[in-house]
């Protein structure tokens, strides 16, 4: 297994290097260092100020290595800073990127972990429920609701829920988040802030998840070992929870573990609309503000997490299914 993991890590490393090159090429195909400086300094910045800013932030170097100066390019600095995890400061507001990410990750996780866990539990329970009542109108209605849920854009969920639950029914705040409520122990306020975005996040994904899990469960339900279990007198609920659920773990794990990196990177739309200062929101700001320094770090972190999640998924197969061997 070690050899397998090392091989995967090596492939992953190469993928990350490629991703870093790609983000560099795409970004500088769209923007010049002057544009980055102008966005940071504002529309009224003059030439001399822009030059000073570029020198301070290292954008006065040539983009690509040259024969005369092979080691002094922006591309080289880009790789060195990311691979050494020296993220530096934001182009837009000069804040240390490491600190920004640490702070933003807390807010993102406060949203995404409850969303992920409740979405997972709800998806599995609903899928088990409809699979249990398969081929009845409950199953048909469940599938219909899932397809309906999948067909609606998350923006509609967000705006609609803000209108219905926050404006009309007045159950939750329309938007807002305060990082201090955790430190202050004001859990009621934190719960109030997160209730609506978590609900929206779960609602927007439950259709797809439930459909997927239901398909897996229904497939398992028709297998021989299930018939054997029933023949031995196991109750239907015991069959579902003890046998079907356990044997459906591989496809479930694939879907679940791959989703883990997204927990750290936050949710772009939910964070923007609910005023949550997480990494999704920071990424949106970086895109809008030509903040290459933050954008590349976000892409880098996401690429690393994604590769690690892929490896973790493979390893988790061996844990849930003893027949699987990683070679």
């Amino acid at each position: 297994m070690l050899a397998y993991v090392l091989r995967k890590l090596a492939y992953g490393g190469l993928t990350v290097l490629g991703v870093l090159l790609l983000i560099f090429v795409i970004f500088f195909a769209m923007a010049r260092p002057d544009d980055v400086a102008r966005r940071a300094l504002g529309e009224k910045a003059q030439g001399a100020q822009i030059e000073k800013w570029k020198a301070k932030h290292g954008y006065d170097k040539p983009l690509w290595p040259t024969l005369a100066k092979p080691g002094g390019s922006l591309l080289q600095a880009h790789y060195v800073s990311l691979l050494s995890f020296e993220f530096g400061n934001s182009d837009l507001n000069d804040s240390p990127i490491g600190t920004t990410i640490r702070d933003g990750m807390g807010a993102s996780l406060a949203l995404t972990i409850p969303m992920f866990l409740s979405g997972l539990v709800l998806g599995l329970v609903l899928a088990l429920f409809v699979a249990f009542f398969r081929e009845t109108y409950i199953d048909t209605m469940g599938v219909f609701l899932c397809v309906l849920g999948m067909s609606v854009s998350i923006l509609i969920y967000i705006i609609g829920s803000q209108f219905v639950f926050a404006k009309m029914l007045r159950w939750f705040p329309i938007s807002g988040f305060d990082t201090d409520v955790i430190a202050d122990g004001n859990w009621n306020l934190l719960l109030r802030f997160l209730a609506l975005p978590v609900t929206v996040g779960v609602l927007s994904s439950f259709g797809g998840d439930t459909r997927f899990y239901r398909t897996v469960f229904v497939e398992e339900v028709n297998r021989d070992y299930v018939r054997t279990a029933r023949a031995k007198g196991a109750g239907e609920m015991r069959v579902m929870l003890r046998h079907v659920l356990r044997n459906a773990m591989i496809p479930i794990l694939t879907r679940v573990v791959v989703a883990i990196p997204f927990l750290f990177t936050g949710s772009l739309l939910l964070e923007a609309f609910f005023g949550i200062p997480g990494l999704g929101s920071i990424t949106v700001d970086a895109i809008a503000g030509n903040d290459f320094s933050v954008l590349r770090v976000m892409v880098y972190i996401f690429a690393l997490l994604f590769i690690l999640a892929q490896i973790a998924t493979d390893i988790s197969y061996t844990l849930v299914d003893p027949r699987v061997r990683l070679e």
Partner: peptide, 17 residues
């Protein structure tokens, strides 16, 4: 307080927040 989107911000104004 930061509200990136104008519609939620305006909604909160109408609620008196």
């Amino acid at each position: 307080v930061r509200d990136k989107e104008s519609i939620p911000a305006f909604g909160k104004f109408l609620q008196g927040y």
